[in-house]
């Protein structure tokens, strides 16, 4: 077993939300496009967003969109279908998690922003924002978008696109 990313790092980060903003106005803005698919049976995908370092080790889970409201946390049953996220971070996490868990999203573009405080603890360096989507009776796809942290001016959006389960993923690290 490889050394796994620390979920506690995230917990610490979320705890830091109340800590002094440390004059850090930097933020990570992410746009995720969920494509509209013409299929007989459509279910909204489960989607995980996380940050990986240069070794592709997960540093921090930012968001997990799944059936968070099913009774008895039954949505957790399929979290493992986001295989890369599950192996790197999900299986050592407790779900649902405040500030991370969210409901599934409809097809379209979804804009989410993560504050510098949420990303506290990231050493300066090159990272990737990773999005993994897994759809019931459908496929799975992973998209990686590189970014540098802390961000430097001027903010330049970086983009990558999936071919099947994800559309464009645009990441803007704003100083």
């Amino acid at each position: 077993m490889r050394v796994k990313p620390s979920w506690t790092l995230f917990a610490a980060a979320s705890g830091l939300a109340a800590a002094p903003a440390a004059a850090n106005a930097a933020e990570l803005s992410v746009s995720v496009e969920i494509p509209r698919l013409s299929v007989a049976e459509y279910h909204r995908p489960y989607v995980a967003l996380w940050i990986e370092n240069a070794d592709q080790a997960a540093m921090k889970t930012l968001a997990v969109w799944y059936d968070v409201k099913l009774k008895n946390n039954e949505g957790n049953t399929w979290l493992k279908d986001m295989r890369q996220w599950w192996r790197k971070a999900g299986r050592t996490a407790t779900m649902p998690a405040d500030g991370v868990s969210g409901p599934t999203k409809a097809p379209g573009k979804h804009q989410v922003t993560f504050s510098g405080a949420q990303l506290a603890g990231l050493a300066p360096g090159q990272y990737a924002l990773v999005v993994e989507a897994s759809r019931e009776v459908g496929g799975r796809e992973v998209v990686r978008v590189p970014f540098a942290w802390p961000p430097k001016a001027p903010a330049r959006p970086a983009q990558a696109a999936g071919a099947t389960e994800l559309g464009a993923v645009v990441v803007t690290a704003k100083p």
Partner: peptide, 8 residues
């Protein structure tokens, strides 16, 4: 072989 959720 890889499962999630409560008591699968």
């Amino acid at each position: 072989t890889v499962l999630s959720g409560a008591q699968p």
